[in-house]
Amino acid sequence: MAKKKQVGRRVEGWKAKSWFKVHVPDNLGKAYIGDTIANDAESVVGRIMTATLGEITNDYAKQHMKMSFKIQNVTGDSAYTEFVGHEVTRDYLRSLVKRRSSRIDCIVPVTTKDNKKVRLTVCCYTFARANISQEHAIRNAITQSVAVQAQAWDLTTLLNGIVSGEISRDLFKAVKTIYPTRRVEVIKSKVEQVAAKVDTS
């Protein structure tokens, strides 16, 4: 004979859990992005939450940018996060591709001023097809420019540069003299870890 499901105990288990309101970092206005449920506050720390930049800033022209945040600490029923990466939607990327032009991808690992290792993926879109030497020159220009910026900025400033488009604009200026360029986008970022400190003593 089959055992009866103990529905009552399951309901009590869910009732024992608590809901926590998740907020983005200070530089994005500590905006509320949703709720997460857990047995206790310790279980919430370390969870990854996502939201579009459009939802965070109420600017729906930026719905194509998906932001990822890691819960760092909990106060009461509020959970506070740190930025761990972003990615542009596939639909948006497809809209940037044009016929008889080049898409030049460049993956740039950088270390910020506050010792965070970040991997950036940058895309350059040209007006016409670039040859191999031109693509190589564009990748070199992007790599050098991003590395210099990252060394002068902490992670918060780097995030602001991605969100505001400042990094993309600076990279556009750096590569447009090499080959006619239509657009440059930082399409993905990932905070990998705290970089190891170098002993200079």
Rank of each mutant, 00 (worst) to 15 (best):
V44T: 03
V44M: 03
V45Y: 02
V45L: 02
V45D: 03
G46Y: 01
G46A: 03
R47A: 10
I48E: 08
A51F: 00
A51R: 00
A51C: 05
T52D: 02
T52P: 06
L53N: 06
G54R: 02
E55A: 12
I56M: 01
I56T: 02
T57K: 06
T57P: 07
N58L: 09
D59E: 13
Y60R: 07
Q63E: 14
M65H: 10
F69N: 02
K70R: 13
K70C: 14
V74K: 00
V74D: 02
A79N: 03
A79Q: 02
A79T: 03
Y80E: 09
T81M: 04
E82T: 15
E82N: 13
F83W: 12
F83S: 07
G85C: 06
H86W: 02
T89Y: 05
T89P: 10
L93E: 15
L93W: 03
L93H: 04
R94Q: 14
L96Y: 05
R99V: 11
R99M: 09
R99G: 07
R99T: 10
S101G: 06
R103S: 07
D105A: 05
I107C: 09
V108A: 02
V108G: 09
T111V: 15
T111R: 15
T112G: 12
D114R: 04
D114G: 06
D114Q: 01
N115L: 14
N115E: 14
K116S: 14
L120W: 08
L120I: 15
T121E: 09
V122R: 00
C124H: 05
Y125N: 01
Y125Q: 01
Y125G: 01
T126S: 09
A128K: 14
R129H: 10
R129G: 09
A130H: 04
N131K: 15
N131I: 10
I132D: 10
I132S: 12
Q134W: 04
Q134N: 11
H136E: 11
H136C: 03
I138V: 15
N140G: 12
N140S: 13
A141S: 14
I142T: 05
T143S: 13
S145C: 13
A147M: 13
A147K: 15
A147N: 14
V148P: 02
Q151L: 14
Q151G: 12
A152E: 14
A152S: 14
L155S: 10
L155Q: 08
T156C: 09
T156Y: 05
L158D: 05
L159P: 00
N160V: 12
I162H: 00
I162Q: 00
V163Y: 00
V163P: 00
G165R: 02
G165K: 03
I167Y: 05
I167P: 08
I167H: 04
I167Q: 03
D170S: 11
D170M: 12
L171Y: 00
L171P: 01
K173I: 11
K173V: 11
K173L: 14
A174H: 01
A174E: 11
V175T: 05
V175Q: 03
K176Q: 15
Y179H: 13
Y179C: 08
P180R: 01
